[in-house]
Amino acid sequence: MSDGDSTMSEAADAVEEASNAKALDVVARSGFAVVALLHVIVGAIAVAVAFGQPGQAEATGAIEQLAANPWGPAVMWSCLIACTGLALWQLSEATLRARHLPRKERLAKLVSSGFLALAYGSVGLSFAGFAVGLRADSSRTTRDFSAALLGAPFGLWVLIALGLTIMGVGIYFVAKGLRRGFKDELFHFDGSHRGKLIDALGLTGHVAKGIALNLTGLLFVIAAGKQNADESTGLDGSLKALREHPFGPSLLVAIGAGFICYGIFALVRARFGRM
């Protein structure tokens, strides 16, 4: 190893050690708790939408519910810090801690944790927007984003790629739930009543979230295929579209209940997860 490589390795080790700081661990666990709360609220909104009630069944709608309480601004800034810490922790998982893994596992970790880092970072930005008074309709924002892509060179293919990527993440969540891959993230409770409950929550929650992501990604692909940005409405639009189909309300209730299960699982992850 050259002196330059040795210096780079030592620097990476130092940054990795800093990422293991107790403070980041606490903030990241708080971020999991925020994610848990958002999923529970989104699930509850989805169930309400199934019965014809108004609401945005996605993260922005959940954040709007939290911002409406008297302590809204303080809650927004606290959640921003928590989500930022969680995004940084996921980023360190994707890069620093993955350095020692075999190449195939390192690439898988880069994709999965890297996507989560972006997702949690975007949620943090949503909290920041609400904290400073910037609020937007998520479906309209998604349509505007899709329209901008469709109007740009190669934007059609970028939109297709985005939709397929989201669907790929959805398939990953379904597979992770079915093969109980989430157990690796927790201290084990096998054999106990609590362990069986956590297993059921993890399975149901991951599969429901995976289905919802597949629906969201599919709408991006449909929007690209029809070259119509109005077809792309994000998670909220994809769930509301179910309401218009036979058995749609029942499926929407099931997905909403699944999101609530995922939220409870994420809360367990915040407390008992391996970091």
Rank of each mutant, 00 (worst) to 15 (best):
residue 102 P to Q: 07
residue 59 A to G: 03
residue 4 G to D: 14
residue 77 W to S: 03
residue 151 G to S: 09
residue 90 Q to I: 01
residue 268 V to P: 00
residue 88 L to D: 00
residue 81 I to Q: 00
residue 102 P to T: 07
residue 246 P to G: 10
residue 6 S to L: 13
residue 272 F to P: 00
residue 95 T to D: 04
residue 86 L to F: 08
residue 31 G to Y: 06
residue 193 H to E: 12
residue 120 Y to A: 12
residue 187 F to H: 13
residue 243 R to N: 15
residue 18 A to P: 01
residue 6 S to P: 02
residue 268 V to D: 03
residue 251 L to V: 15
residue 16 E to H: 06
residue 206 H to S: 15
residue 129 G to N: 14
residue 88 L to N: 00
residue 124 G to S: 14
residue 190 D to C: 02
residue 38 L to H: 05
residue 272 F to E: 14
residue 136 A to T: 14
residue 63 I to H: 05
residue 262 Y to A: 13
residue 267 L to T: 03
residue 244 E to K: 12
residue 102 P to D: 13
residue 213 L to Q: 05
residue 10 E to V: 08
residue 110 L to S: 12
residue 180 R to L: 06
residue 72 G to A: 07
residue 226 K to D: 11
residue 237 G to K: 11
residue 101 L to Y: 09
residue 60 T to H: 07
residue 68 A to F: 06
residue 179 R to S: 13
residue 94 A to K: 06
residue 225 G to S: 11
residue 206 H to R: 10
residue 171 I to G: 04
residue 203 L to G: 01
residue 118 L to I: 11
residue 235 L to F: 12
residue 250 S to G: 12
residue 195 G to P: 02
residue 140 R to T: 15
residue 15 V to E: 09
residue 22 K to A: 12
residue 36 A to F: 01
residue 23 A to C: 06
residue 5 D to F: 10
residue 64 E to H: 13
residue 93 E to S: 11
residue 22 K to D: 10
residue 254 A to D: 09
residue 7 T to E: 14
residue 162 L to N: 09
residue 219 L to Y: 12
residue 41 I to F: 03
residue 214 N to I: 15
residue 95 T to G: 13
residue 263 G to N: 07
residue 6 S to M: 10
residue 156 L to Q: 05
residue 123 V to W: 00
residue 37 L to C: 08
residue 97 R to F: 12
residue 221 V to A: 04
residue 251 L to Y: 11
residue 45 I to H: 02
residue 112 S to D: 02
residue 250 S to D: 09
residue 41 I to C: 03
residue 72 G to F: 04
residue 108 A to Y: 03
residue 106 R to A: 11
residue 34 V to E: 00
residue 97 R to L: 07
residue 38 L to V: 12
residue 233 T to S: 15
residue 123 V to L: 15
residue 195 G to Y: 00
residue 67 A to P: 01
residue 83 C to Q: 15
residue 208 A to M: 10
residue 133 G to N: 05
residue 119 A to G: 05
residue 6 S to R: 15
residue 233 T to I: 01
residue 158 V to M: 11
residue 72 G to D: 06
residue 183 K to G: 02
residue 213 L to R: 03
residue 18 A to Q: 04
residue 31 G to S: 13
residue 89 W to N: 09
residue 26 V to A: 13
residue 239 L to A: 07
residue 196 K to Q: 14
residue 139 S to I: 02
residue 104 K to H: 08
residue 97 R to I: 06
residue 275 M to H: 13
residue 157 W to A: 10
residue 233 T to C: 06
